[in-house]
C-alpha cells in the first residue's frame, strides 16, 4: 500500500476545510481500504469522517433524515425504516455481510466503486481508473456488467443495493463542500459513463455527503428483490426496488421501479412506470411495462441473460406487490 497521511475530522465543516487535492474522505473503509491495498486508490491523505456526529436517523414529518455516518446495520434495523420504508430496509439487509454492514456508512455505500474485475486489477487497462487506457471488459469478462446506459468507454455497474432503493424513493442527498451546501436528487447523484467513466458521481472534489433525506413513502406496498449467484453475501446480477399502489378499480394508481446491477447508476425505470400508471394491475400490463423499459437494453455477448432476468424479476416483484 502506498504511504499516506491520516487525520480525523471533528465536524463536517472541519472536514471540508481540511480537504486538499489528493485527499480522500474515509467512512467505514470497507471498499476504500481494499482499493488502497489493491493499488487502485492512492490517496495522499485520508480525512476520516466516520466519527462525525452524522450518525442519527430522525423522522422529518412523514419523511426521514439519515445521517451520512449511520452504519448500514443501524439503518436496516431502525424501527422507522422498517415501518415506513420496507423497500429500503430490504435493500440494505440484502447487501454485503453482517460484519461489513456494521462498518459501512450510508455516505460510503453511495460512493463505493464498481466491482468490475478490470477496474480492481491495476495490471489491466481501465478507462475508469485511467481515462483513455481502454476497456478490456467489452471484449473480455463482462458477464456481471451493464446492459443499460453503458458507453464504448465503460460497461461497469454500480454495486450498491441501498442506492437502488433510494433512487426509487426520490431521496435527496445532502452535500457540503468548498463552494457551499447543496442537495442532489436520487437518481442523479450517479452518472452514466459516457466518455468520462472515471467520474462515478456528480460530486466535485472536496464535497462531502452529510445526510440523505427521504420524502414520505409512496402509497401502496413496497419491496426489494435481488438475484445473485449465491444465496447471500454477493452483489446483484439484477435487483428491483418497487412500490405499487393499486386503486379500488384495479388500476395502477402509483408505481416506483428502479433496477440495480444493470447500469453505471441505479436505474430508475421511468418508461415502465409511465406504461403502468392507469393500466389494470396484472400480468399483461406488468410484462408490457418491463418490455417498455428493457427495449433500451444493449446487452453484450456474455451478459444478455440479464435482459430476460430483469424482465422476469420486474413482473414477479409487481405480482408479489399486487393485493
Amino acid at each position: 500500500m502506498k504511504p499516506f497521511e491520516y487525520t480525523r475530522a471533528g465536524a463536517a465543516a472541519g472536514a471540508v476545510a481540511l480537504f486538499r487535492p489528493g485527499d480522500m474522505y474515509l467512512g467505514g473503509g470497507t471498499n476504500l481500504v481494499d482499493l488502497m491495498r489493491l493499488g487502485v486508490a492512492e490517496p495522499e491523505r485520508l480525512v476520516d469522517v466516520s466519527r462525525l456526529p452524522l450518525d442519527r436517523v430522525e423522522a422529518d414529518g412523514d419523511g426521514l433524515r439519515v445521517g451520512a455516518a449511520v452504519r448500514n446495520s443501524d439503518l436496516g434495523a431502525h424501527p422507522l425504516v422498517l415501518a415506513r420504508y420496507p423497500m429500503l430496509a430490504r435493500a440494505v439487509l440484502s447487501g454485503a455481510s453482517g460484519q461489513i454492514r456494521n462498518m459501512a456508512t450510508v455516505g460510503g455505500n453511495l460512493l463505493q466503486r464498481t466491482r468490475c474485475p478490470y477496474f480492481q486489477d491495476v495490471s489491466k487497462p481501465c478507462n475508469k481508473r485511467l481515462r483513455g487506457s481502454g476497456c478490456p471488459a467489452i471484449p473480455g469478462d463482462h458477464a456481471h456488467l451493464a446492459v443499460l446506459g453503458h458507453s464504448p468507454a465503460c460497461v461497469a455497474t454500480h454495486p450498491s443495493d441501498m442506492a437502488v432503493a433510494l433512487a426509487a424513493l426520490d431521496a435527496r442527498v445532502h452535500v457540503t463542500g468548498p463552494a457551499g451546501s447543496r442537495e442532489v436528487p436520487m437518481p442523479g447523484l450517479h452518472r452514466l459513463p459516457g466518455d468520462e467513466p472515471d467520474r462515478d458521481t456528480v460530486l466535485e472534489p472536496g464535497e462531502l455527503i452529510t445526510a440523505v433525506a427521504l420524502p414520505p413513502p409512496p402509497p401502496g406496498r413496497a419491496t426489494y428483490r435481488k438475484v445473485r449467484e449465491r444465496a447471500s453475501f454477493a452483489f446483484a446480477l439484477v435487483s428491483v426496488a418497487a412500490a405499487l399502489d393499486v386503486g379500488a378499480d384495479g388500476t395502477v394508481a402509483g408505481v416506483r421501479l428502479a433496477l440495480g446491477g444493470v447500469a453505471h447508476a441505479p436505474w430508475r425505470a421511468t418508461r415502465a412506470e409511465a406504461a403502468l400508471l392507469g393500466a389494470p394491475a396484472g400480468e399483461e400490463a406488468f410484462a408490457r411495462a418491463a418490455e417498455a423499459e428493457l427495449e433500451q437494453a444493449v446487452p453484450l455477448p456474455r451478459n444478455a441473460y440479464k435482459v430476460p432476468l430483469a424482465r422476469n424479476l420486474i413482473v414477479q416483484t409487481l405480482r408479489e406487490l399486487t393485493p
Binding site: Y6, G29, T30, V33, L46, Q99, I100, N102, M103
Partner: peptide
C-alpha cells in the same frame, strides 16, 4: 463484529 483486515 467487524472485519479486522478492512480496518485501519
Amino acid at each position: 463484529r467487524v472485519n479486522a483486515c478492512l480496518l485501519l
